[in-house]
């Protein structure tokens, strides 16, 4: 653990960042500029220059991350410094502007910078918490193995369902089809899939329900699924509910019990898979904010500097 980017070099970069903040605050406290504190004083210019250099260096991380050869310091070190110096910018930037905010490009640049830093902090939080959650969730397996397990369960369940009767078989087949669509390997569409997940449950339950009533083999108490307060998170559970209903209307044979067990097992796997996907996408999603924001900050910074010197 003490090898992580947080602990890197015995918190060397935290110490540097804290030192930088401390010196800035001290100078800010003792400095007595003409007029209110602002970027216009010698201290304002100094802090501004340091801040701007740090921003450019922070953005350079995107380039460094992709340089795989001929680099001296490890990426872990870079990230450690990136995190702590980035956080220090909150202090340096704020002191640089002397708490002067207005409706202008300067404040926009400041806001963008703060948003970037905040999104970065969310990233740090995710980086520190989610890896452990992923391991805790799927244990020694990985998504691929889970998928393989589900495939196996599907096959067994379908075989058992076939032995029960053609209706249950059809339902099972339908359910497998639905979850198959869900389980497609996630890539860039992962966010979209997640958003659609709730929709699919509704669709699935509706479809299950319709096909039940249309065929009218057994009358199902109308609100069984949809009225449940805790809506099932997964189409598998929907199916499981239906089959439970079915089992009330006929003798709950051994086969049916086996099928239910399998479906529950699968629901647990799907839940894990789903969580895994959520966790993995969280590790990436914050970057979709952090990177554009940091580029926007860079652009705003350039405009800010040009306008300061122009006027």
């Amino acid at each position: 653990m003490n090898r992580s980017f947080i602990h890197q070099d015995q918190f060397l970069y935290l110490k540097i960042a804290l030192g930088l903040c401390l010196v800035s605050i001290l100078l800010y406290a003792v400095d007595d500029p003409v007029g209110p504190p602002s970027g216009n004083s010698w201290l304002g210019y100094t802090l501004g220059t340091i801040g701007a250099l740090i921003i450019v260096w922070l953005v350079w991380f995107g380039v460094r991350k992709r340089q795989y050869t001929g680099t001296r310091f490890s990426l872990t070190r870079w990230l450690s410094a990136h995190v702590y110096l980035g956080a220090a910018l909150l202090v340096i930037g704020t002191l640089h502007c002397g708490f002067q905010f207005d409706n202008n490009i300067h404040t926009i640049a400041y806001i963008l910078m703060v948003m970037t830093i905040l999104s970065g902090m969310i990233g740090v939080y995710y980086y520190l918490t989610i890896p452990g959650l992923i391991s805790a969730n799927i244990g020694n397996a990985n998504a691929q193995q889970l998928n393989a397990t589900i495939d196996q369960i599907d096959r067994k369940a379908l075989e058992i369902a076939r032995q029960i009767d053609s209706f249950v078989h059809e339902m099972m087949a339908y359910s497998i089809q639905t979850t198959l669509n869900e389980r497609r390997p996630a890539n860039k569409k992962v966010v979209m899939d997640m958003l659609n997940f709730g929709e699919t449950i509704k669709e699935a339950s509706k479809a299950c329900y319709c096909s039940l009533t249309k065929e009218e083999p057994i009358r199902v108490e109308q609100p069984v699924i949809l009225s449940k307060k805790r809506a099932p998170k997964d189409p598998q559970l929907v199916l499981s509910a239906i089959i439970i209903d079915l089992s009330f209307n006929r003798s709950p044979g051994e086969k049916l019990q086996q099928l239910l067990d399998l479906i529950n097992e699968k629901a647990a796997c799907i839940q894990k898979l789903h969580l895994d996907r959520v966790y993995n996408s969280r590790l990436k999603i914050w970057l979709m904010f952090h990177v554009p924001l940091s580029l926007a900050t860079l652009i705003a910074l350039v405009i800010h500097i040009v306008s300061v010197f122009y006027y």
Partner: peptide, 18 residues
Amino acid sequence: NQASGPACVHACPTGAAL
């Protein structure tokens, strides 16, 4: 051939790889 050692470890952002 890399002065900085194994690239996989050198390129790990969080220090997870060793």
